[in-house]
Design a binder for these strands. Structure first.
Lengths: 193, 193
DNA sequence: GGAAAGGCTGAGAAAATCTCAGTCTGTCTG
DNA sequence: CAGACAGACTGAGATTTTCTCAGCCTTTCC
């Protein structure tokens, strides 16, 4: 009983691209460049021996095969996500401690984060900090930073916010195990409005 | 709607290790060394923040969390496998052309492959060849070789056979898109007896 | 015509993963 | 009890995969 299926990274790229019908948008979602998506999808198509997309000047279209494939891949991904959320953080219900760099806090909407009632159940406290070490020490659960740390063992989720001065992209940094939990999702959604 | 879950390679290692309750056996199945499995599983556990296995002197045991996780991961993998088989090769029902290196054919059981009725529906012809190029030219669908080619864009499946002289490990080489199809499975099963 | 958008590609950089060789612990054997 | 063995772990370095970057191409829209 051996499972055999294509590169799982390729499937991830396909799934996102098919959902958006855009390599560029998929790239944004997955935090890579469009070229990377293009290459992943192409490799996937080569390994399956079929075309999943039709590239038209007006945009992408799923082929018949791609359209058949997508919902089943999505279902599998749902299962992986739910299974992971179910076992992973023994922190269901725990409130998170969050750090924000001082430079960033001046640029965030005033309403955030102290006065957002919606986040009360998820946030224990918010401190000024940009110390990534604090995450490893368990002093902080997450950091909001204006730059990526690109630290391989941390999860970084980009968030595009409307700020005082035009749009601001910030990064929500956590241990990987916290990247998907209810608390994190609630915070990110609230941030993005 | 963004899916977030741990490294898919790590999940693959976990799934195989949990099924065998052995890192070594999982390594054999996935065609890597036990050290690689050990590292993958460890990374997965770190990213989830929980232990999936208990390492006892007598062997591996799943933790409660690991045991909860496994069936759901397996189900997701089933779905990926089935979806892939459903869309992938437009060769359902096609018979395969197979090449066998001359050195190898002398060492295979006499019964194979020409006289195996079970394989009739799956094999069109068998030729003497060890030319990997022929796979890319579509002149051959698969090769049976005594060594790995380690060609990145080909799928190689090791097969342990009872041969004239003790055990013989050979490699079934195909395009990745053919690695999982019914024909291939039938041939491999027949080979392994 | 000119600019903008989106996808593609090749080269090289970066990251993830694997192998290798050696270690350790516990079990089995005589 | 010594010795052999089995299986898991580890760090260093090699290998492979994946990503970025910069530039190109085609189509659409002013």
């Amino acid at each position: 009983m051996t499972y055999r299926f294509p590169s799982l990274n390729g499937l991830k790229a396909f799934e996102a691209a098919a959902r958006h019908l855009s390599f560029k948008a998929a790239a944004g979602e997955l935090g890579v460049t469009p070229g990377a998506i293009s290459q992943q999808v192409k490799r996937l198509e080569a390994s399956l021996g079929i075309a999943l997309f039709r590239r038209l000047p007006q945009g992408l279209l799923l082929t018949r095969e791609g359209a058949d494939y997508l919902p089943r891949i999505s279902r599998a991904f749902d299962e992986l996500t739910e299974a992971t959320e179910a076992v992973a953080p023994a922190l269901n219900g725990r409130k998170l401690s969050i750090g924000i760099s001082d430079r960033l806090i001046e640029r965030l909407p005033k309403s955030w984060p102290r006065h957002s009632a919606a986040l009360d159940p998820y946030i224990r406290d918010v401190r000024i900090s940009d110390d990534v070490e604090a995450i490893w020490n368990n002093e902080l659960d997450a950091l909001l930073l204006e730059r990526e740390t690109r630290h391989a063992s941390l999860a970084e989720q980009p968030v595009a916010l409307p700020a005082r001065d035009a749009t601001l992209t910030i990064y929500f940094v956590t241990r990987p195990g916290l990247a998907t939990c209810r608390q994190t999702r609630a915070i990110l959604e609230e941030l993005q409005g």
